[in-house]
Amino acid sequence: MPDPARFEILSGLGAKGPACIRLRTGRHVWLLDIGSGPEADAPFHPEWLDGADAVFISHDHVDHIGGAVHAVRAGLPIRCTAQTARALPPGARVQVLPERGETVIDGIRLVTGRDGHALGGIWMWFDLGEGLFYSGDWSAESRWFAFDMPRVTAGTALIDCSYRRDDVSQDRRRVELDATLDALAPEVQVLFPVPPSGRAGELALHLLPRGGVTLDDTCREAVRVALASDGVTPRARDLRPLLDRPFDPAARYLICDTPDADGGMAARMVQDWRGQGRLGRDARVVFTGHMTSPARAIVDEGGLFRRWNVHPPLHDQIAMVRQLRARRFAPLFCEDPADYLSEPGFAAAPLLDGWGLL
């Protein structure tokens, strides 16, 4: 008789760190995400792969996919969407998952849906016990990425709570960003460092009515791929004119890779502006996501932080857990998950010990 299905959160509970969850189905051992970072001192631990039969990856951001090279070296099959597979190292044994739909793997039904967070990103529901839902990163507020609300029930929900109990809506975030930009003198250039498959398109869509928007080559290609996919909303088509325009370093609003300005065109622009004595004066850097140490150093030089929601605020976390009719949930990717013990909105118990039976 097979052992009961169970899960163990190897990393991702109690910190904004690498995502990695071990799922024992009773017959096999699967890993859900194999991340590293986002901080430099948060690596993927290869021993997490011990005993694993396969890897499932929710999306292509480093804190969910950064350990993929170890899975490839181990010869493990990697199950992810075709878009996410583009970010895998050469030699990966890819088994493609649908962005939305049902798959049966080793007799276990898996339902996937678009996560509203990254191109090709998915949430996953496993038909084990009372049901296990793993969100990866997700957002229900995006005007760029498509999001599929799950139509399943799950006794256990492992959900992205990166913003903890912050409950500021994306509509409010847009107003705050606009106010910041409106307060800058017209001659000030603004750099938005972004993950190309993440906020690049969304910020471009928001800034488009202002004019003067340019995408670096990496972001422009990511937007091009997104527009050819089923992963974005109909409004995304408004960005098509930007695809024919080369990157203009003299534009008012620059959207560039990487998100912490520690590489890519974003790093080059910061270096140029610093050398010209412009950084923090008539050339400003606006960070909109999680900031690692390179980004924090730039803020100290006159950069700005204005959060752009790419994870769920509290009211959406609550709505998700209620939608799933979960009895318990693990608040992932945040510090102090015990804070959820005092949050009355959830009709489920916070799971803080990092494992459980299904």
Rank of each mutant, 00 (worst) to 15 (best):
R93T: 13
R93K: 15
R93Y: 07
R93D: 02
V94Y: 01
V94C: 08
V94G: 06
Q95H: 14
Q95N: 04
Q95G: 15
Q95K: 09
V96I: 11
L97S: 03
L97M: 14
P98E: 01
P98T: 11
P98F: 13
P98G: 03
E99A: 15
E99Y: 08
E99H: 14
E99D: 15
E99P: 12
R100P: 03
G101R: 10
G101T: 07
G101N: 07
G101A: 12
T103L: 09
T103Q: 13
T103C: 06
V104M: 05
V104Q: 09
V104E: 10
V104K: 10
I105R: 08
D106G: 15
D106T: 13
D106L: 15
G107F: 11
G107A: 08
G107N: 11
I108L: 04
I108D: 03
R109L: 14
R109I: 09
V111T: 14
V111S: 10
V111A: 12
V111G: 02
V111K: 07
T112Y: 10
G113H: 09
G113L: 00
R114I: 00
R114Y: 00
R114F: 05
D115N: 15
D115W: 03
H117C: 14
H117A: 12
A118Y: 12
L119C: 10
L119V: 15
G120A: 05
G120N: 01
G120T: 10
I122Y: 07
W123V: 02
M124D: 04
M124Y: 06
W125E: 00
W125T: 00
D127H: 06
D127A: 14
D127K: 01
D127Y: 08
L128Q: 03
L128W: 11
L128M: 11
L128G: 07
L128K: 00
L128D: 07
G129M: 11
G129C: 06
E130Y: 07
E130A: 15
E130R: 11
G131V: 04
L132W: 00
L132T: 02
F133E: 02
F133S: 07
F133Y: 13
F133P: 03
F133Q: 02
Y134H: 13
Y134C: 05
S135L: 04
S135V: 01
G136R: 14
G136K: 09
G136W: 07
D137G: 15
D137C: 02
W138R: 06
W138I: 06
S139P: 12
S139N: 15
S139M: 09
S139K: 11
A140T: 13
A140D: 14
E141Q: 15
E141D: 13
S142W: 07
R143F: 09
R143T: 12
R143N: 12
W144F: 13
F145W: 09
F145K: 00
F145S: 05
A146T: 03
A146D: 10
A146E: 06
F147V: 02
F147H: 05
F147K: 01
F147Q: 00
F147W: 13
D148M: 01
D148H: 10
D148C: 07
D148L: 01
M149F: 04
M149E: 13
M149Y: 07
P150G: 03
P150Y: 13
P150N: 13
P150T: 05
R151I: 09
R151N: 01
R151C: 10
R151A: 11
R151M: 08
V152H: 05
V152F: 08
T153S: 10
T153D: 04
T153H: 11
